[in-house]
Simulated assay, not measured.
Amino acid sequence: MPRFALKIEYDGAPFAGWQRQKEHPSVQQAIEEALRKLQPDAPGIAAAGRTDAGVHALGQVAHCDLVKDWDPFRLGEALNHHLKPLPVSILQVAPVEEDFHARFSATERQYLFRLLCRRAPATHERGNVWQVAYPLMLAPMQEAAQRLVGLHDFTTFRSTMCQAESPVKTLDSLEIEEFAVPHGQEFRFHVRARSFLHNQVRSFVGTLERVGAGAWSPDDVQAALEAKDRAACGPVCPPQGLCLAHVTYPQDPFQT
């Protein structure tokens, strides 16, 4: 049975997350229903990451098994036709080996979080950024971010509902950029790791925002990390600024 990798872009606002649910719409459900327009008995699909409600994707990856050996371009076109008018797009389809797994074969996941600082409400970027009404300082946030890089017990930055077996993870990189935008600032947080705990990125950003606002110091972030206590975490920021940007594999299935 041919296996295909799907590179997927979506707006997470209308969905209760990636994972299929009984009573709420999900991105997984939308794509599986589109696949079943092509093959009524098509099995379920698996993704590189289970994004939460309201979280977006620029480069989510999933794999599916189909009976027909589709031309990848035609499969993508057919799925996009059946996904309309939902804000889900199949960017690319690639045939892969039968042992390829979108989740377990991945070696790194990259997330992007966008934070807008300005008093006037966002219009064009509404739903794609977390907005605060005051300026932030870049340098102390960058210093605090470096305290989080490396192998650590991230219990402080882990949701109490997290199902991961261990809170010990390696954070490869947490880089922050600042951009001037009309009447304000935009900060972009680029976060890379092999895998993440539930709410880990949003916990990072919410805590670092407190540093940028001057309410916390980089040493406070260090102390929170070392506390290994969820109560020591800063605020968990809302989901709309978060986006799964890229998934890395030993061999990129989409490389042309």
Rank of each mutant, 00 (worst) to 15 (best):
R194V: 04
L35W: 00
Q251C: 05
A245R: 11
T170G: 01
L6M: 06
T248P: 00
F196M: 03
L242P: 06
A5E: 07
E125K: 12
L197F: 08
V67H: 05
Q163L: 11
A232G: 06
A42F: 05
C117T: 09
K84W: 09
S166L: 13
L58Q: 13
E98H: 11
Q142M: 07
Q142T: 07
Q255T: 00
D252Y: 00
D65R: 09
A5M: 10
A232Q: 02
F15G: 03
S159W: 06
D229K: 01
Q110R: 15
G127Q: 13
T160N: 10
V181G: 08
V96M: 13
Q29F: 02
A223T: 02
P72G: 11
G17E: 12
D65H: 12
S159M: 08
A106M: 13
K68I: 07
Y10T: 13
Q131L: 07
V247A: 09
V93P: 03
V211K: 00
V149H: 03
H101I: 05
R126T: 14
S217I: 08
D71C: 12
D220I: 04
L116E: 08
P218S: 07
G214T: 05
Q110A: 13
S203R: 04
A245Y: 10
P250Q: 11
V61C: 13
R109G: 06
E32R: 04
A62S: 15
S166V: 13
H24E: 14
E178H: 03
C233Y: 00
A139H: 08
V168L: 11
T51R: 14
L38Y: 08
T256K: 03
Q255Y: 00
L115E: 10
Q110F: 10
A46V: 07
V221W: 02
T51Q: 15
V205G: 05
V181I: 15
H183Q: 12
P43C: 06
T248H: 02
